[in-house]
């Protein structure tokens, strides 16, 4: 009997009945939390920010950085590695740009001085140094990445030279 019921539910529902139970529990908790939001009298703003958070990430932020990445890579295709045997440089641009963008994404209210008014009132200081801090960190990231690339290029060319020497020796023998 139980077995039969289990199979019927699974066939109609599309998954194990436990799946249904877990999701019902999830929605019950969310519904209860939502009722608390209503009691707090902030449900309209909460709902807009909650759904807006998902939309902002999935349909704004992610496409934006994906397009930026595609653009960087297309530059890479037009300007492939400078000389024969040069290692690909794409990640030496991608990584510092990504990290710098990440820091801006987190700290933009300080860097772009959006929170200047409240910050000044609370902390007693100005938000003006943060733009400089962010630019400094960005500069260090790009410089470090360029240095790492230079080291890689040297190592690759040295390896190529050694290989060439080795072939020369062999041909001489």
């Amino acid at each position: 009997m139980w077995h039969y019921l289990h199979r019927r539910v699974a066939a109609h529902y599309g998954a194990d009945p436990l799946h249904l139970l877990a999701l019902i529990a999830c929605f019950a908790l969310a519904g209860y939390a939502a009722s608390r939001v209503v009691v707090a009298g902030v449900w309209v703003g909460f709902l807009i920010w909650f759904v807006g958070a998902a939309i902002f990430h999935d349909l704004v932020l992610l496409p934006l950085y994906a397009v930026a990445d595609v653009a960087t890579r297309s530059v890479g295709r037009r300007r492939p590695a400078g000389g024969a045997g040069r290692p690909p440089w794409i990640n030496h641009v991608r990584v510092p740009m990504g990290l710098s963008g990440l820091l801006l994404l987190v700290w933009f209210p300080l860097i772009l001085r959006g929170s200047q008014h409240e910050y000044r009132k609370a902390v007693g200081l100005d938000t003006s140094p943060y733009l400089g801090h962010w630019l400094l960190v960005t500069g260090v990231l790009f410089a470090g990445s360029a240095l790492a690339y230079a080291v890689r290029v040297r190592r690759t060319s040295r390896r190529a030279r050694r290989r060439a020497d080795l072939t020369n020796q062999r041909t001489r023998r």
């Binding site: 999830c26 969310a30 939390a33 309209v44 703003g45 909460f46 920010w49 209210p109 929170s115």
Partner: peptide
Amino acid sequence: QLFYVFPFSFYPAHLYGAWIFLGALA
């Protein structure tokens, strides 16, 4: 960052939002 642009008090929104998130996460 004291960037109070959200149209609600932080405490209840962050607490209730956390329960919705944690339930769905579990």
